[in-house]
């Protein structure tokens, strides 16, 4: 699917797996970041406390110029600060790079890396418990990328900043 000579070939991979099977794809996705990472997530502790993901996020924060985590409006920040305290410690250490905010809107769960590597999660819960349906996109054409980034910015601008 070649859209532009400079954009490379777009590759879309469909994934429908149990949550734990996403540790590897998300870790490798986060490690690809060179400029920025934008995540919309709940920071589900049982998932994000896994060593591989912790390492990927820590590595990502040190590599990119901006790492923004937009938390789902349903999360309880107080509980989250206890359950994934390491990420808030990381924010304290890399306050210029890592920003965390709590959304005011109903957000979808995405990971956008460098305008190029995207992970889009299904809006609605799947029928099977703990199963996620996602699209993982490589070499995202700009015409697609900018719409997701624009939407992220809208959510981010309406969000409330979270600090330690």
């Amino acid at each position: 699917m070649k859209l532009h000579p400079f954009e490379g070939v777009m590759r879309v991979e469909k994934m429908e797996r149990y949550i734990e099977c996403f540790v590897e794809p998300i870790s490798s996705l986060l490690k690809k970041g060179k400029n920025f990472v934008e995540m919309c997530t709940t920071l589900y502790p049982a998932f994000y406390n896994q060593e591989k993901l912790q390492d990927a996020i820590k590595e990502g924060v040190q590599k990119v110029t901006k790492f923004r985590i937009l938390l789902d409006r349903k999360v309880d920040i107080y509980t989250l600060k206890k359950d994934v305290s390491w990420i808030f410690d990381l924010q304290d250490k890399y306050s210029y790079t890592l920003e965390i905010a709590k959304a005011s809107d109903d957000i979808e769960h995405w990971i956008l890396v460098d305008e190029k590597y995207f992970r889009i999660e299904a809006k609605d819960k799947q029928k099977r418990v703990n199963v996620l349906r996602t699209l993982q996109i490589e070499n995202t054409p700009y015409i697609i990328a900018k719409e997701y980034m624009r939407q992220f910015d809208i959510w981010w601008n309406n969000a409330e900043e979270v600090s330690l």
Partner: peptide, 18 residues
């Protein structure tokens, strides 16, 4: 001319959202 390719992407998102 890129539209067909983009339509392919839209079809994938239809799968995503069921």
């Amino acid at each position: 001319k890129d539209i067909k390719d983009l339509e392919g992407y839209i079809a994938q998102t239809k799968w995503l959202h069921g």
